[in-house]
Amino acid sequence: MAYNNIQTESKDNILYITINRPKQLNALNRETIGELSQAFKDGEANSDIQVIILTGTGEKAFVAGADIKEFANYSVEEGKSLSADGHKNLFDLVESLGTPVIAAVNGFALGGGLELAMSCHIRVASENAKMGLPEVSLGVIPGYGGTQRLAQLVGKGKAIEMVATAGMINAEDAHHWGLVNHVTFQSELLEKCQEIANAIKKNSPKAISNAIKAINAGFEEGKNGFEEEINQFGNSFGTADFKEGTSAFLEKRKPNFKGE
Rank of each mutant, 00 (worst) to 15 (best):
M1H: 13
M1C: 10
Y3N: 05
N4A: 15
I6S: 10
T8W: 03
K11Y: 02
N13L: 02
I14S: 00
R21K: 15
R30A: 15
G34T: 04
E35R: 06
L36A: 09
S37T: 02
A39L: 06
A39Q: 05
K41G: 02
A45E: 10
N46K: 01
S47P: 07
L54I: 08
T55G: 12
E59Y: 09
A61R: 01
V63I: 15
A66N: 07
A72W: 03
A72P: 00
N73H: 06
S75K: 06
V76Y: 12
E77F: 11
G79Y: 11
K80F: 14
A84L: 14
G86V: 03
H87N: 08
K88N: 11
K88T: 14
K88W: 01
N89E: 15
N89I: 07
L90V: 12
L90G: 06
D92A: 12
D92T: 12
E95R: 15
S96H: 13
S96R: 09
S96F: 10
P100V: 09
A103C: 12
N106R: 15
G107M: 05
F108P: 00
L110Q: 10
E115P: 00
L116W: 07
L116E: 08
A117Q: 05
S119N: 04
H121K: 10
H121S: 04
V124S: 06
A125K: 09
A125T: 07
E127Y: 04
E127D: 14
K130R: 15
K130L: 15
V136L: 11
V136H: 11
G139T: 08
P142E: 11
G143L: 06
G145W: 04
G146D: 05
L150Y: 03
A151E: 10
Q152V: 07
V154D: 00
V154E: 05
G155Q: 08
G155H: 01
G155A: 07
K156A: 12
K158C: 00
E161I: 02
T165F: 01
A171L: 09
E172Y: 12
D173F: 08
A174C: 05
A174Y: 04
A174F: 08
H175R: 15
V180R: 08
V183T: 13
T184A: 04
L190P: 01
I196M: 14
S204M: 08
K206D: 04
S209F: 03
S209V: 01
N210E: 09
N216F: 06
N216G: 02
G218P: 05
G218Y: 08
F219L: 05
G222E: 07
E227F: 03
E227G: 00
I230E: 15
F242C: 11
K243G: 08
E244H: 03
E244K: 13
T246E: 02
T246I: 15
E251T: 12
K252I: 11
R253A: 09
N256Y: 00
F257D: 03
